[in-house]
């Protein structure tokens, strides 16, 4: 496994023989009672609550007024890897402009605020360890969203920090391999302009440490990095960053579903 000095425990890679087991980070005490209410499409729960506070009776407004938590999920159990720079429950989603090559345009990481819940992960396509698992977790959400009819409510945004290697073909091949459909609007594989830009965005804005290595053999990875997935709600507020280890396979999907349902 690798370890970096600093405030981050790094992506734990055990070559191919032993990997790691994620700890359930779920705090699913139940979906908010607001889930049973019907909200207009593309209408944030916070905005809806705010509107109610103005127009509804004092009793209702008073009750809802206590709900000033901008997130659906609880903060969750913080892992040792969650450093100060990683956005966490309640933080605003960092806003940065990055190219989305397969869609031939530049998007902002907060471009979908008010429209879609956002899932980000930080990968390089040459990675054969954690990165496919991280991207596959997002692909699983995309696939479920397509199958279950909420695709317009989510967008998955893997970000590569290996822009020199990850050309359009690599981004597409990697996306296809992990089960994503990269041509859909629900999948934007983001690529910074160069390594400096990658560091500015991935480390500077999202607190994800990565470092290029000098592989000694073919199974050594050319980067070591923090394994992380960030889930932000449609209001652009981070619900959770799963950092330091790959979460249980169904955790990201289940948590995303909980957020989607809470905003319906």
């Amino acid at each position: 496994m690798y370890s970096l000095q600093g405030n981050e425990v790094q992506h734990q890679i055990a070559h191919t023989d032993v990997a790691y087991i994620g700890v359930s980070d779920n705090h699913r005490a139940g979906v908010s009672s607001l889930n049973t209410m019907t909200f207009p499409a593309r209408y944030s729960r916070r905005a809806f609550i705010g509107g109610l506070a103005v127009t509804a009776s004092g009793a209702i407004a008073g009750c809802l007024g206590q709900d000033d938590d901008p997130t659906v999920l609880s903060p969750g159990e913080l892992s040792p890897a969650e450093g100060a720079g990683i956005p966490r429950n309640g933080d605003e989603l960092p806003s940065v402009q990055v190219k989305s090559p397969l869609h031939e345009r530049t998007v902002s990481t907060d471009a979908f605020v008010g429209e879609r819940h956002v899932l980000l992960t930080y990968v390089f396509t040459r990675c054969t360890m954690a990165c496919p698992l991280l991207a596959a977790a997002l692909a699983m959400v995309q696939a479920d969203a397509i199958a279950s009819g909420y695709e317009d409510d989510i967008v998955c945004m893997p970000i590569t920090f290996d822009p020199g290697y990850d050309d359009d073909e690599q981004l597409r091949t990697f996306s296809d391999a992990v089960g994503a459909d990269p041509d859909r609007e629900s999948w934007h594989f983001l690529r910074p302009d160069d390594p400096t830009h990658a560091e500015e965005i991935v480390t500077g804005n999202f607190g994800i440490e990565f470092r290029e290595t000098e592989p000694e053999d073919e199974i050594d990875m050319p980067f070591m990095h923090t394994s992380a997935i960030t889930l932000a709600n449609v209001d652009g507020i981070v619900e959770r960053t799963y950092a330091g280890r790959v979460p249980e396979t169904t955790t990201v999907l289940d948590d995303t579903l909980e957020v989607v349902q809470a905003f319906e």
Partner: peptide, 25 residues
């Protein structure tokens, strides 16, 4: 050097894994 780090990290992860069982159904 890196191999030793790897082994130490593996042990840490296995320790984490043991703790994780409690969370599983």
């Amino acid at each position: 050097m890196r191999r030793r780090t790897l082994i130490a990290g593996t042990a840490g992860c296995l320790g984490l894994g043991v703790g994780a069982w409690a969370a599983f159904r």
